[in-house]
């Protein structure tokens, strides 16, 4: 599904990712953990196509094709979804409108017919229930005046509707209370399937108790320095990151 080879990424001359390798197969969930500033969010943004990052070396293949060569909207239409850490507010544009436009863009790329308002409502109703989102929420402006938790739930709602092949969740757990975290996790788990891959970027282990990853990677100073399974996440939670960094330094 996703192959990242020797990825180097810089922002304004400063190198942030320094030779990152990662391989994600369909059906797998990978967690990327690491201290602040290790490059986790940079990785998420680069996969989604944010153009303020420049890739200086390496390549990223998505289903065998060069992902970095695609415009952000092309990636989205081919099934790459980023749940944003800080979803942006768009005043005056209602939530339902954006979501329907996004769904239709995806369907058009897949050669499927456009959904009308009726079908759209039918399609999102159960997903809204799952995310504990009320109907009036659809008529509010995108993310405007949303609480932190509402923004994150909205991201997951969009993901459920768009049914991506590769979902990247950037710190979706940050700022959530326990109840909201459970709702978000239920949403994510409902989307687990053999033909879909997910990358969870987080620095808290608690999310991974609810969404159990197949692989856990530690990102430090722009590289993946240790990989393991969910036990690694528990160990990090108990011991912090220092020991991994020291291990990496001495290796």
């Amino acid at each position: 599904m996703l192959t990242i080879e020797n990825l180097h990424v810089a922002v304004e001359e400063r190198e942030i990712l320094k030779g990152l390798d990662l391989s994600v197969n369909a059906g797998e969930i990978h967690a990327i953990m690491g201290p602040n500033g290790s490059g986790k969010s940079t990785l998420a943004q680069v996969l989604a196509g944010k153009d303020s990052y420049s890739v200086t070396q390496g390549r990223v293949l998505y289903r065998g094709e060069d992902l970095l060569d695609m415009e952000p909207e092309e990636r989205a239409r081919r099934g790459v979804f980023l749940a944003f850490q800080y979803p942006t507010e768009i005043p005056g544009v209602n939530n339902a409108y954006l979501l329907k436009a996004a769904l239709n863009a995806r369907r058009e790329a897949d050669g499927e017919p456009q959904v009308d308002a009726f079908e759209f409502m039918r399609l999102i109703r159960s997903r809204m229930e799952l995310m504990n989102i009320s109907k009036e929420f659809l008529n509010r402006s995108v993310n405007e005046g949303f609480s932190g938790g509402e923004k994150k739930r909205n991201e997951i709602l969009q993901m459920l509707v768009l049914e991506p092949s590769l979902a990247v969740l950037d710190e979706t757990d940050s700022g959530l209370d326990v109840d909201a975290l459970k709702i978000v996790a239920a949403g994510v788990n409902s989307l687990r399937s053999d033909d879909r891959a997910m990358v969870l970027v987080t620095h808290y282990e608690r999310l991974l108790e609810l969404i159990v990853p197949d692989h856990v990677h530690v990102l430090s100073d722009g590289r993946i320095v240790k990989s393991g399974d969910r036990e690694l996440a528990r160990e990090l939670d108990a011991r912090g990151y220092d020991w991994v960094q020291q291990e990496a330094a001495s290796a």
């Binding site: 952000p72 239409r77 942006t88 768009i90 544009v93 768009l162």
Partner: peptide, 23 residues
């Protein structure tokens, strides 16, 4: 805002139209 809309599959042009119309 533009990146957010494009990440959801909208072309840049559609994104601008949508944002301006919202305004």
């Amino acid at each position: 805002q533009l990146f957010y809309c494009r990440q959801r599959g909208l072309s840049e042009e559609d994104a601008v139209n949508m944002i301006v119309n919202g305004f």
